[in-house]
Write a protein that binds this DNA or RNA. Structure first.
Lengths: 192, 192
DNA sequence: CCAAAAGTGTTCAGACTACACCCATGT
DNA sequence: ACATGGGTGTAGTCTGAACACTTTTGG
């Protein structure tokens, strides 16, 4: 929650870099300080430098975004950052500063890169079912995908390996669990 | 040409921003000061901030790239910037600082975006033949394209309009000249 | 008439889309 | 037995790739 003129609005986590710190290191530090999250995928988004984006003065922001699995968000709230929350995009409207623009840019980037990289691995736990994977795609692309076609394409991409293990949730047939062969960023064709 | 430890190496144009200047405005200004070029397409590339990228001290660079038609480069060389030259990528090796990395990032970006935007308009004069357009694609993608397939796809994309005029160069059949319907950036599918 | 660039269609293979039913489990 | 999510195949359409000859001009 921010002060005037952004009273009561939410904002993305942010902070200042020091003279001997890269923006990547600063992003990792700030993410850790404000949320406790470490060891996740980080990617430089872009730099926002409109003259009046912060009413308090000139601020040039090098924006980074993190991707992490839904399960691992165990938000640690220190006293200093007690107001921190995870929110779905749908409830992250009307942010302070130009943070709506930043968030939108991050969503656009993610949406585009899902189609030609394997970066979705950073949004899933080590083992996952194909249905879970499909759900991630559907959320980000904001449209439904055909189950059979999705499985054909994602398996044909050759990025997954079957773990052999299964998971049963509720009174259903067990789901085979897969994992990514590699957690390096690969550029290829995956989903159209 | 740069001083120690980059004696005799070339570098990309660059400069400092002022407190009341966006990086876009600075990019436009520096490009104008060093080359005389104005009114061209500019796009933010990314920010380079490794701690030791400039041996003289901490420098965070927000890199932008410009696209301009081959014909319009009339390089004005002021006294201050007498050493400025246009060079093909193939003769832009071994640059000072991390400028090889920056240049490579720009080439990668351009190569990728040619396939799904109409930004190639910024690399051509107002009127151009389909062969000229194809040549631009071939240079940037660094591979040959089939003439018939190229024409089918580029015309099917619907971004061009025939101007009705023709151009004759040498003892050849005249080439029909086309122009882009719009010079706004459009995201669509063009060339695979 | 010759040289050189402009212009033009068809065929084949692979990819994408749409679509419906059976399977395995816990209750 | 039933409710629920997991899992599978095929037919039709579309897209991309390969490929060669005719046209128009100036010299």
């Amino acid at each position: 929650m921010k002060k005037s003129p952004f009273v009561g609005r939410w904002a993305l986590p942010g902070g200042l870099i020091s003279d001997h710190e890269t923006t990547l290191a600063a992003a990792e530090r700030i993410l850790r300080e404000e949320t406790g999250v470490t060891g996740v995928y980080l990617e430089q988004l872009m730099t926002f430098d409109e003259l009046k984006r912060d009413p308090a003065g000139r601020v040039v922001s090098v924006a980074w975004f993190a991707l992490l699995p839904d399960g691992e968000l165990e938000l640690h709230t220190s006293e200093k950052y007690a107001g921190v929350e995870w929110r779905p995009i749908s409830r992250a409207k009307n942010l302070a500063y130009d943070h709506n623009k930043i968030l939108q840019a991050a969503v656009d980037r993610l949406r585009a890169k899902l189609g030609y990289t394997n970066m979705v691995w950073s949004l899933l736990p080590t083992k996952f079912s194909l249905t879970e994977l499909q759900t991630v795609y559907e959320i980000i692309l904001d449209r439904e995908l055909d189950k059979r076609n999705f499985r054909k394409k994602i398996l044909a991409a050759g990025l997954l390996k079957a773990t052999g293990s299964q998971r049963i949730i509720g009174a259903h047939r067990p789901a085979a669990l897969y994992s990514f062969k590699t957690k390096k960023l690969i550029v290829t064709n995956i989903i159209s």
